[in-house]
């Protein structure tokens, strides 16, 4: 049964979100290099791209450990102890 044997290497639970993921990451990457690092960090962008991508993730992400992070609010102190010198 050749058909049943899928190549798992290129498959993951979030593959159905690939297009939305690419759209969000493209938008994010542009915002990061053209605005954020140049001092224009006052306004969040790519909001609609993120909402669509996130909705897809919450539907398809089947790993419980990972989906926990989707819902959780990011708490800076969770990020571990910073390597010397950077204040929180």
């Amino acid at each position: 049964m050749r058909i049943a044997k899928k190549d798992k290497r290129d498959q993951s639970s979030t593959s159905p979100c690939a297009h939305l993921r690419a759209a969000y990451h493209n938008c994010f990457n542009r915002w990061y290099s053209e605005k954020f690092v140049k001092g224009q960090w006052g306004k969040e962008e790519c909001v609609s791209e993120w909402q669509k991508y996130r909705a897809c993730l919450s539907e398809h992400l089947d790993d419980k450990h990972l989906s926990r992070f989707l819902e959780a609010e990011i708490v800076p102190s969770d990020l571990g102890k910073p390597v010397d010198g950077v204040s929180q």
């Binding site: 993951s12 979100c17 001092g39 960090w41 993730l57 992400l61 790993d63 989707l70 800076p76």
Partner: peptide, 27 residues
């Protein structure tokens, strides 16, 4: 690297800090 997904992100517009959590699936 099989897959990289952004799970969460937060921008602090006051301080200019960006926090991001990503899932990285490794083969």
């Amino acid at each position: 690297i099989v897959e990289v997904d952004t799970l969460n992100h937060k921008l602090d517009p006051e301080s200019g800090k960006l926090y991001t959590t990503r899932a990285i699936t490794v083969h």
